[in-house]
């Protein structure tokens, strides 16, 4: 039971981190703007480094859980720190935690998530025997992420676009018939 909980916790956290990282890498601008709003120096470079660190933490959680605890905890503190900075300045700064999706602002959510990140870090550090960990599991996780993204985010706009293009095609066909 504990082993199952450990796997669920680590893989759940790894999936969240991977999703956040790939979103930021796919559309880096919103996250860069968030960093600029937080007045983080070298925002453009940090906007690339943070998702890479998130990927490293996800790899750590799935491949070598014991060694990733510090990284996960550091990320949790960094997210909460960003929220504290935004709240202390009284500024509404867009989170961009998951790239361009969502309009949430930095604040209580990141603070509330900190204990969860610490629990994940503690689990990966303290759990005596991490079942089901290895590079194969991480590879499976990346493929699962790709499938989830394709099914939940890509399919709907792709079908809408296809329907829209069909309309354009019928209109273009009508226009061609109209021409002498």
């Amino acid at each position: 039971m504990i082993a199952l909980l450990d796997v669920a916790l680590r893989f759940g956290a790894a999936l969240v981190l991977l999703y956040a990282a790939t979103q930021k890498l796919a559309a880096p601008r919103p996250f860069r703007q968030t960093l600029q709003a937080l007045r983080v120096p070298f925002a453009a470079a940090v906007a690339i480094v943070v998702p890479l660190v998130e990927i490293a933490a996800a790899i750590g959680l799935t491949v070598a859980p014991g060694g990733s605890a510090a990284l996960v905890a550091a990320l949790g503190f960094a997210f909460a720190g960003a929220a504290v900075v935004a709240m202390s300045r009284g500024e509404r700064i867009r989170c961009a935690c998951y790239g361009s999706t969502g309009d949430a602002t930095l604040g209580w959510r990141q603070l509330a998530a900190l204990p969860l990140w610490l629990v994940v870090a503690l689990d990966s550090f303290l759990a005596p025997d991490h079942a089901w960990s290895g590079i194969g599991q991480f590879a499976g996780l990346t493929l699962a992420l790709a499938v989830v993204v394709a099914g939940t985010q890509l399919l709907a706009p792709m079908l809408r676009n296809r329907a829209y293009l069909r309309v354009l095609q019928t209109q273009a066909a009508g226009k061609n018939q109209e021409m002498p």
């Binding site: 991977l18 790939t22 979103q23 890498l25 796919a26 559309a27 990927i55 790899i59 790239g99 361009s100 590079i135 991480f138 590879a139 996780l141 990346t142 493929l143 992420l145 790709a146 993204v149 394709a150 985010q153 890509l154 706009p157 792709m158 809408r160 676009n161």
Partner: peptide, 19 residues
């Protein structure tokens, strides 16, 4: 496989962003 999976996820999300 892991690297390709990651690249695939990034490309799919970039496509979502384009749509």
């Amino acid at each position: 496989i892991a690297v390709l999976g990651l690249l695939l996820a990034v490309c799919l999300l970039a496509l979502v962003d384009q749509y």
